[in-house]
Write a protein that binds this DNA or RNA. Sequence first.
DNA 1: AAAAGCTATATTGTTGACAATCGACTTTAT
DNA 2: ATAAAGTCGATTGTCAACAATATAGCTTTT
Lengths: 224, 224
Amino acid sequence: MPTVPKLQKQTFGARIADELRRSIFAGEIAPGSALIETALASQFGVSRGPLREAIRQLIDEGLLVQVPFTGTHVVELSEQAVREIYSLRTTLETFAFRLAWDRRDAEFANELKARQAALIDAIDLGDELECIRRELDLHSLVYETANHQILLEVWNGLKGKLQLYWASHHMAHGRRGPRRDSHDSFLDAALGDDLPAMEAEIETHMRLGSETTERFLKDRNQTA
Amino acid sequence: MPTVPKLQKQTFGARIADELRRSIFAGEIAPGSALIETALASQFGVSRGPLREAIRQLIDEGLLVQVPFTGTHVVELSEQAVREIYSLRTTLETFAFRLAWDRRDAEFANELKARQAALIDAIDLGDELECIRRELDLHSLVYETANHQILLEVWNGLKGKLQLYWASHHMAHGRRGPRRDSHDSFLDAALGDDLPAMEAEIETHMRLGSETTERFLKDRNQTA
DNA sequence: AAAAGCTATATTGTTGACAATCGACTTTAT
DNA sequence: ATAAAGTCGATTGTCAACAATATAGCTTTT
């Protein structure tokens, strides 16, 4: 059966959550700024009910923060959060690789290469937001292969925050995109037969990412 | 300043979420059963709006599952999920101990002992649901000490599911409560100076928990 | 008798109006 | 001039009615 064009009925709240998420990642709604329900509702052409549900969803994804009877804001960026995200990610991705290690097959290898190729395409095209998505897609394959539903859910939660930080980086500096060869050694290890080497590669990869993102935030906060 | 009696204004949705959660843990709403919004709303004496928000909250905690335009149910129990919960928990708690290891001080030790004492009190009193809460409180201390906000959030998510499984175990067998000495070696290691020994203790503790819970589910599914 | 189509009903999704609450500004008293 | 108290406007929380959807049961057809 050819993949049907996803005709499934979707609720307003879900669609608006997608739109809002995109707006936040695109920097159209800056970190720290407030969201007013009535304004957004009329802007999206829906009532406050579905909009509230969308907000709720983004709160759970860690993109918004809400205080009762007062308001909702996009989360502020902090170096502490960056360290937390990357340290947790190191732990989870190591765990994911251990689970996935014996499940790797020819299809895994092909898919991994395909996603790297897709990432490189986006780099060459210069589409920054697409780069971010595809780099996350590349890493997601390991989580998908691990065959661990709850782990996958936690990773999806982390992905949102990562995307926010990377997108902010891009907004500020114009370019934070990865280099074409940024995942070469990662793929080498992932396709090899040395699990400890893979774990070392993860640590290196994450430390690099964490330092880059932290430095960006430090500069930004000094300027402001 | 003496602790003020928590006079902070709370939203209906939040309070109802608490009530619903309690009902689920108490087994008043069995796993797999459906929740109908109108009935619950009138039962709690509120409108469907706040109730919907409460449902949403419990969905994010992994206690309910929803399919659009159709309905929401309490999650079904599965052995696969048990394995996932405990394996992820092993990973996270090991990570938490590594972070917390050098932050342990006299207060940490006292608090840990206090929480074990509280657990033993509940065991002696025979209050099963309270036992569950206090065993989770005991383990929570490590996550609180780790000084890692996101890790704490993920743990809180896992806690909900654990509570559901343990509560179901209790409902079925009348008694699943831990023995008085069930955490002795855990505390010994946690208060000692041998981190690898602590990690081994975590693995043992979790394997034991996982096997117990899995066996309960296996029996239950065979009977049904 | 089994399968396909239709209809009725229960349940969820959505809406616009109303009530409660908070933050900022103004006023007032010291 | 400053700080406490009060008022106003904006925003969120809540409600009850309405629309859209899916499931179950019946009818029809083969």
